[in-house]
Amino acid sequence: MRKATAIIILALVGYYFLSVFLTVPFGEKRNNVGQYYLHNTVRETGAVNSVTAIVVSYRGFDTLGEVTVLFIASLGLGAILFDKKGKKRRLQHASLIVRVGAHMLYPLIVLLGAYVFVHGHLTPGGGFQGGAIIATGVLLMFISYRSFETSHKALTYIESIAGMTFVLTGLSGLIWGNSFLQNVLPLGEPGRLISAGIIPIIYIAIGFKVGAELTGLLDNMLKTIKSD
């Protein structure tokens, strides 16, 4: 009886949602802020990838906030799991194929992640994607080898220094320019690696930060498992 009423109410609410969302035309060109961004990205920011320009340059303040959200999530996890961790991960040793494969794939995955975040302003991708790819590579090693350790001290230092780099880049805009996060470096030629002002610097900082954070998060969680 309760399930039936729940499903009926959900269906009604879903129908209402759908009827409002269907009034928005999908996929046609509309008059919005996005059109301005598409036309003016290369000229104003020097980055070829529009999405990166929007994320780091036009709305860089939001990106600072999102990096902080990830930081808080990792911090909260560390605070809650503070005294529940063992000293070593107690998973089983993985099989031979997994171990050999992980050993070969790990440097390639880390290289791919680094490529993605260094070339954020030229190719699709960026700091968050690169950091997540690196964390996935480290996860592969965590699962395959019991003895693979990452230094907790090094991860904390990388996170803090990368975060402070981001805020200091923003403050440099305040000191040498007019506003927080303003681009104070020369824009260069679009399409080259060293171009687009502060965008590569910020994305490299974000890449390191996200990679270190997600690795620390996975390490925290994997250490709480007691094997049976």
């Binding site: 993605v116 699709p124 960026g126 968050f128 790819i133 996860l139 997600l214 996975l218 994997l222 498992i225």
Partner: peptide, 27 residues
């Protein structure tokens, strides 16, 4: 035609989100 979002969804949704759920289920 949104490759950035596709890359993010692939990296985070497939690997990391799943492993966190699996750890929670194991406990």
């Amino acid at each position: 035609q949104a490759p950035d979002v596709a890359l993010t969804e692939a990296a985070i949704g497939i690997a990391l989100s799943t492993i966190i759920f699996v750890i929670a289920i194991k406990k």
